[in-house]
Design a protein around this nucleic acid. Structure first.
Length: 1159
RNA sequence: GCUCGAGUGGUGGAAUUGGUAGACACGCUGGACUUAAAAUCCAGUGGACAGUAAUGUCCGUAUGGGUUCAAGUCCCAUCUCGAGUACCA
């Protein structure tokens, strides 16, 4: 009986579906007593093109692992579903008017059929579709949860918004340490309670984890939609090439930035590929540095130098440096011995963290203050204890700190702190909330500060200018009259350039001088303030302190505008370029930093900056909040309606809010999103239903949100929903989530590194904070499968120019037609292109002509009077050729089939000889005509062959080209495997029992066969655990080759063998398993136990090397000692021949490994 | 530019802790079977040189150095390819 794979595979696929073989047990169900294992694939977007052979690669790998874990006794959940909201269906709807739901359902059908044909062990009872209202109900629900939450930086987690409101009611917002919008106005509890509800809502919106904000987007008026950065190519839309402009729009955003640090930290505890972690790290973009404020000097007027009697006070730094060490020591000592009151207040200041950071016993100028908030320039002193330092100078000190340095000093007595702490706190709060006093700064200013963020505060003495982004708000304020024209012209010029232009054109250096100067906080030297578009308004503060010697961009800018480039690095030449190395840096020309290496200089300078009160240590993140609105139809609608322009959440019990029907899927004429076309899209607060727009009265019926959610909304929690997919009362039961916990193995493409995988982690952490999930990372282990590449074919084409020199001719439908007295007399179809060989192609390319072509042209012209054909080297093309137009699996072009295609119907082959296409490895894609469809492979070779071959191609994570020809190898392996079990008469099934199993006349398998089996068990088990599936396929081949040679037909060998192979080739395994007499599925048969005793060897074939080069091998007993081995080797005739009389200097013997003779 | 990954026969790729480089396949060559083809089976197959042959010698894991008795594997430098990212201060 031969191996009829089509029948076998269909039979078992039907069996699995009917018996629900792969249904995973939830808690309480039979099977849930087993340990759980959750294997997940990144679910697919069901595109119209269906699957190609690259898609199932990861699914096959995860399926093998899932099946292996079932053999190992786990309750395995291996679900599958569809990420079925998406742009292609919407585009198709716009073009054809077909509802996206319809096309999506059709595509899913194709996907399902294809997936079933490959024999995956998915638990289809858990299937989810993101576009199914029963599913997106919960996506909407999560959105509401996010809306009702804020991020408390003190507890470092998300909390319900009600906890924030109660803080506001009691003490206003000063003490709140939250992730929020910038620039929130401070208010007290009284103010809060007096605010109108609307005012309160507006304030709360600034704290919520999902919030409305004005976001700058890439607006494409022609498409009526917002485009992602990668949808824009060269400043125009990728699709259609329409112009794109920057536009501000009110959109929903997610406060993912609140989780930046936790998202970073979490990477350490998950087993994900390093490149993926790196790109997330990169994306989050944490940088440590300092905020430093530079004062703007009165514009135009340079301050007089101290020697000229100017306003700057004597350089206090010198004395600082002298007492610096003393101060520090004292401060440390005092921190160890706080007074009772100090300790109490510190506990509160530290823990309550009044949004700002306080330091205790901190040196400020020449003093040590009790508590200081450097950011807010607030000093708190507690009196009554013995001031060990400056005992009688409180008044003088306060004068200096307040009047000269711009600090506010609050004083409390010990009693106040100990007995009336609330009042103390209130005063502190009030002070923190009051607008910063203009103060009596020591330098005449107009009160403007330019804060900058720098990662290299250690290079602050190298600052020779400052650069502001052209959009910086201070630009217009500080520019002097003389520079006004130039600056304005520059600002205008940059505004015209799009973000992309600016990014693309990095080389051009441009900028303008404002005429204003800032004061260097240490040297007090004036430094010129420039503007330049290399500074981005959106990052940091939109301003930089420029250190040309240490930053290449600053260097180039300085060179271009002839600004000084002071060198502050010891022993470094900066005449050619900036020196950005950190590790080898030694600072010079920098006052108290001189001679310090990078790390020490950083510590010292940050300490100094904080002490002197013009800056503080700061950690910055590059990651921005994620925009969550899309101006599309085919996405989740928001559960949001608007009252007086303010968003209101719909009560979760009325979810889902179902996507409305629209006439057309385009934006409305006035630029509203497609949902603006919906006629029934308003919310009635009385009936709690979606009602007709005509009923909108803004009292009980309100307009609903017109945007929809982005693609990542539905995929950010689907892995948890799989745990309890049909639950209608909650997103998933706590029972289910506590049983399944998290994904044990997640397999998918690396293209999701910073999208899906970052947002999912964010939502998971949020759900964790809310106590909904037990793990704050959703996937323990993740593997990126490599792409399977296609092998494209190319054809060489010479385009022809056809002319006629007869004046009564014209071109019609690709033919040259001739007419006489309005009658068509004849029509000659002239080929438009000539398909040539590579040689001819290259000939024409190089010389502009070729003899064979000339010959053909001459012949054609002779046969067709009046026709003129010309060609040239610039009319050569090399288009992709559809690989279905090749003969079988060869590179030979099927000429007839090619000429029958529309594209080449006007072409002619130059020569009669066979043509061969050139092959090249490229991404597999429809547009490159190199797609290989798995259906055809399953038809011709079977799903088991496809599965094995996809694994056999190479390591899972690596990209590799597909070559269908190679599949014959694994296919003949399966045939050999089949034969191994069919050694009876006429190829009938034949297996012998061994005597131990009670079979009378049974045969004990040979020790070789046992050895083969057990080394296979060992290797395959190791391979699966290491996700090295390609090597286990080889191992199977070796095992079957060996067992065939050994003529093994023992059940004791063949039964365990088929379990080993079952995860890889499940259909043939089930068939052989049932033939072996089992009447249940092989899927939960226990994995064979490895027994090392079968592999124990008594001897080893030693490689005998001379000077490291292997010369011959020798079989030696493993019992021999080193000396005995040496004696045996030295006595060998080949050893004597190799040595040729020389005496070896040394003999290296590693028992069981190798012998190496040196000399 | 920066970060990460990878370079092994004609091809896909093997090679535990450094210990017989090229497993297993594809392809190719030769043979068996066949009228023939397909399928199947058998043998050979990194390169160069010597020999009728068995066999032997030399060269070989991107390039150049180094460590070691021994390097595809470890170290240093360079080149090439791929992925991600980018005026991120």
């Amino acid at each position: 009986m031969s191996y009829h794979f089509n029948e076998i595979e269909a039979k078992w696929q039907k069996y699995w579906a009917e018996k629900q073989t792969f249904k995973a047990a939830n808690p309480g169900e039979e099977g849930s007593e087993k340990p759980k294992f959750y294997v997940l694939d990144m679910f697919p977007y069901p595109s119209g093109a269906g699957l190609h052979v690259g898609h199932p690669l990861g699914y096959i790998a995860s399926d093998i692992y899932a099946r292996y874990k079932r053999h190992k006794g786990f309750n395995v959940m291996h679900p599958q579903g569809y990420d079925s909201f998406g742009l292609p269906a919407e585009q198709y709807a716009i073009q054809t008017g077909q509802h996206p739901a319809v096309t999506t359902a059709e595509n899913i059908k194709t996907y399902r059929r294809q997936l079933d044909e490959i024999g995956f062990s998915f638990d289809w009872s858990r299937e989810v579709r993101t576009s199914d209202p029963n599913y997106y109900k919960w996506t909407q629900w999560i959105f509401i949860q996010l809306f009702n939450s804020w991020y408390n930086k003190d507890s470092d987690k998300a909390e319900d918004i009600s906890s924030l409101i109660s803080v506001f009611e009691k003490e206003g917002n000063a003490g709140v340490n939250a992730a929020s919008d910038d620039g929130i106005e401070p208010f007290t509890a009284e103010q809060w309670n007096a605010f109108s509800s609307e005012a309160q809502q507006k304030i709360l919106l600034q704290y919520r984890l999902t919030f409305l904000s004005e976001t700058e987007v890439n607006w494409c008026p022609a498409l009526g939609t917002v485009l992602a950065n990668d949808e824009i190519v060269n400043g125009v839309s990728e699709r259609g090439g329409h112009p794109v402009e920057r536009k501000k729009m009110k959109q929903w955003s997610m406060r993912i930035s609140a989780y930046a640090q936790r998202l970073l930290d979490g990477l350490n505890k998950i087993d994900w590929p390093q490149p993926l972690k790196d790109s997330q790290t990169n994306w989050i973009g944490r940088s440590e540095g300092a905020m430093v404020s530079f004062k703007v000097l009165s514009t135009g007027d340079l301050p007089l130098a101290p020697s000229e009697g100017g306003g700057t006070e004597p350089r206090y730094r010198t004395s600082d440096s002298d007492i610096y060490g003393i101060l520090l020591d004292r401060a440390k000592e005092m921190r160890k011995n706080p007074t009772l009151a100090e300790a109490k207040l510190w506990e509160i200041l530290k823990k309550k963290g009044l949004k700002v950071k306080f330091r205790r016993q901190h040196p400020i100028f020449n003093y040590i203050v009790d508590f200081v908030c450097i950011e807010k320039k607030l000093i708190i002193e507690v009196d009554g204890g013995i001031h060990k330092y400056q005992l009688n100078a409180d008044a003088e000190r306060q004068l200096l700190l307040e009047q000269k340095k711009g600090f506010k000093v609050l004083r409390f007595t010990n009693e106040e702190v100990l007995n009336d702490i609330d009042n103390v706190l209130l005063k502190i709060n009030q002070e923190l909330n009051s607008p910063p006093s203009e103060g009596l700064g020591e330098v005449p200013t107009k009160g403007w500060d330019i804060p900058v963020f720098t990662t290299r505060p250690d290079t602050i003495f190298g600052v020779s200018f400052m650069t502001l982004a052209p959009e910086h708000e201070l630009v217009t304020k500080i520019t002097t009259d003389a520079q006004k024209a130039e600056v304005e012209a520059y600002v205008k010029a940059t505004a015209k350039r799009s973000e992309l232009d600016r990014m693309a054109d990095v080389k051009t250096i441009s900028g303008a001088f404002t005429g204003a100067y800032a004061e260097h906080p240490f040297t007090k030297e004036p430094i010129p303030i420039w503007i330049g578009d290399y500074v981005l308004a959106g990052y940091g503060t939109g301003a930089v302190m420029s250190v040309p010697c240490g930053d290449q961009r600053d260097y180039d800018f300085a060179k271009h505008f002839n600004i000084a480039i002071p060198n502050i690095f010891e022993g470094v030449d900066i005449s050619e370029e900036a020196y950005a190395d950190k590790d080898k840096t030694v600072i010079a020309n920098s006052d108290f930093l001189n001679g310090l290496p990078y790390k020490k200089a950083m510590k010292t300078i940050i300490y100094e900056i904080e002490k002197r009160g013009f800056g503080y240590k700061k950690i910055n993140y590059r990651m921005r909040d994620a925009v969550f609105s899309r101006q599309r139809y085919w996405g989740e609608p928001f559960p949001v309606y608007y009252v007086n322009g303010l968003p209101q959440m719909i009560d979760p019990k009325y979810l889902p809010i179902v996507l409305p029907e629209v006439e057309k899927y385009l934006p409305t004429e006035d630029g509203k999103p497609p949902l603006g076309n919906a006629e029934v899209w308003a919310w009635c607060t009385e009936t709690n239903q979606v009602v007709d727009n005509s009923k909108i009265d803004n009292k009980t019926v309100h307009p609903l949100e017109l945007n929809t959610m982005p693609g990542w909304a539905g995929s950010s929690q689907y892995f948890n929903r799989y745990m309890d997919p049909h639950n209608e009362g909650e997103i998933f039961s706590q029972d289910a989530v506590n049983y399944w916990q998290d994904v044990d193995l997640y397999i998918g493409g690396s293209e999701h590194a910073t999208g899906h995988l970052l947002y999912s982690r964010f939502w998971q952490k949020f759900m964790f904070d809310k106590g909904l999930v037990p793990k704050d990372e959703f996937a323990k282990k993740l593997i990126n499968q490599g792409m399977i590449l296609g092998t494209s074919a190319f054809v060489y084409v010479l385009l022809l120019k056809v002319k006629t020199n007869l004046n009564n001719s014209f071109l019609l439908e690709g033919k040259t037609s001739f007419k006489d007295n309005d009658k068509l007399t004849k029509a000659i179809k002239a080929p438009k292109s000539l398909i040539v060989s590579e040689d001819v192609f290259n000939d024409v390319k190089e010389y502009g002509k070729n003899d064979l072509v000339d010959e053909w042209v001459e012949q054609f012209e002779n046969q067709n009077e009046g026709m003129k054909i010309s060609y040239s080297s610039d009319r050569l093309i090399r288009p992709n050729l559809d690989i279905s137009l090749l003969k079988g699996l060869t590179d030979e072009i099927n000429k007839e089939a090619l000429l029958n295609t529309l594209q080449y119907s006007d072409s002619v082959f130059l020569e009669e000889t066979p043509y061969f296409s050139q092959r090249e490895v490229e991404k597999m894609s429809k547009s490159k005509y190199n797609v290989v469809n798995p259906d055809a492979i399953c038809q011709q070779y079977g799903a088991d062959s496809l599965r094995l071959y996809e694994m056999f191609l190479g390591p899972l994570e690596q990209a590799k080209p597909w070559n269908t020809a190679g599949i014959t190898g694994v296919h003949s392996f399966l045939k050999k495997l089949w034969k191994l079990y069919h050694t009876g008469e006429n190829g009938s099934f034949y297996v012998t029992n061994s005597p131990l199993e009670g079979g009378v006349g049974g045969v004990e398998p040979s020790s070789e066969s046992f050895k083969t089996l057990h080394k296979t068990i060992k290797k395959v088990e190791e391979d699966i655990e290491n996700f090295s599936f390609n090597t286990s396929v080889s191992t199977f081949m070796i095992a079957v080759n060996e067992l065939t040679a050994e003529k093994c037909n023992s059940r004791a060998i063949l039964e365990p063998l088929i379990i080993l192979i079952s995860p890889y080739a499940p259909h043939i395994a089930e068939e052989l398993w049932s033939k072996l007499g089992h009447n249940t599925s092989i899927s939960t048969a226990p994995f064979p136990e490895f027994d090392g005793s079968y592999l124990v060897e008594s001897s080893k074939t030693y490689p005998i090397s001379f000077n490291g080069k292997m010369r011959f091998t020798m079989d030696l007993s493993l019992d021999l000692t080193k000396d005995e081995i040496e004696a045996a080797v030295m006595a060998h005739e080949k050893t004597i021949a190799q040595l040729a009389g020389r005496t070896p200097k040394k003999v290296i013997i590693v028992p069981g490994k190798i012998v190496n003779i040196v000399g």
